[in-house]
Nucleic acid binder design. Structure first.
Lengths: 200, 200
DNA sequence: TTGCCAAAACTAATGGCATTAGTTATTATA
DNA sequence: TATAATAACTAATGCCATTAGTTTTGGCAA
């Protein structure tokens, strides 16, 4: 009927992303992708080196979009406002792209250099936002780990429908972040020569 | 050679758990499990209803152990001490049983009643620990969601080798929890008629 | 002790998947 | 217009889960 459809890697990734978000990450197979593109599955090997490579590139594709979303969200903001914006954008991404978000979690040990790089860039964005609080050395690393844990943990549980109660998840996330910020302020005070008797 | 080995579901689950922790959740297949048990894979169907059921029961098995670990850890403690103990036990479980921990994340939509129940029991444990802080209504739910997010998010990132820097993860987790507790105290104050001008 | 039967484990077969080898045919370009 | 690169194809292999149907065993009742 129509040989030479003109596929390329970008087309494959976009189609795979749709499959992931509509039917879940599990549904992304070479067979289903080939069907969606009206092609036989061996034809896909002309554009990508198998299922493993597809998944790795899908994770990269996903993290790239996430990075862009996060960067746009914090653009021009700083301090608490930037942290809240970052959290909202992160959660929104995971909600809008559940399958792509899952793809980032299934990434095969970031041996892949590309993956490594974009992951670092996202961490760098978080570090940049937290720089405002002037934490030194180890404290900055601990804080970054903490915020990453909060962002991922919250979205991950939300995605798996882990929050049963009918109560705003946006409010929950905002409160969690504000708790984190309260902790940052305490850390900061203790660092500056502890003029603070700390909590009981 | 030796027909009638005498398998049962518990034996299958224990072997599957070993496979998961030693070689990763992906490695748990009926084929690999059968090989480990010196049996042909169709024989497994005498004891479990296929791969899906095996995975679901493995998730249940995992959460049951996690529940026991957490319950033992908070036994006799309350307040901040209980929360720290809970966090340490949670992280220790995820470290000691990476494959089993992953199994809980891959659980097929907790349609399974058993799974639903043990998940609720774990949430109940967290609710119990947070009850000490006397939060009312929605605040209690938000706090529970927050602590769950922290525990899961941290362990999840640690498991995927997401924390690159050579800096104690135990300290990171403890600081994160202390930040959370600082936030709880602030929430509590605001709830009690706001004698607190809140952060800027 | 003997014989029976429930069920544990088996072999054989099916279908879906990823992957490889080798073929056809189209498109760009020389 | 002819050729070379390559997109897409068919055919075939091997692994996996699963089902059907068979063999064999071990406990239990007569």
């Amino acid at each position: 009927m129509s040989p030479r459809i003109g596929l390329d890697e970008q087309t494959l990734l976009r189609a795979a992303a749709e499959l992931a978000d509509e039917q879940g990450f599990e549904a992304v197979t070479l067979a289903s992708l080939a069907q969606k593109l009206h092609v036989r599955s061996p034809s896909l090997y002309n554009h990508i080196e198998g299922l493993g490579a597809l998944r790795a590139k899908l994770a990269f594709y996903s993290l790239s979009i996430l990075y862009d979303d996060l960067a746009a969200a914090v653009e021009g903001l700083e301090g608490d406002e930037a942290v809240y914006a970052l959290g909202a954008a992160y959660a929104a991404y995971a909600r809008r792209h559940p399958g792509l978000y899952e793809a980032t979690l299934r990434a095969p040990d970031r041996q892949e250099n590309e993956l490594e790089r974009v992951s670092s860039e996202i961490v760098g964005l978080i570090v940049g936002v937290l720089r405002y609080y002037g934490l030194e050395g180890d404290a900055a690393i601990h804080a970054t780990r903490g915020l990453r844990s909060i962002l991922h943990g919250f979205s991950s549980i939300e995605r798996s429908r882990g929050f049963g109660m009918a109560l705003s998840v946006e409010v929950s996330q905002k409160l969690l972040i504000s708790a984190f910020l309260a902790g940052i302020h305490v850390m900061k005070q203790e660092e500056t020569g502890r003029p603070n008797p700390a909590a009981k």
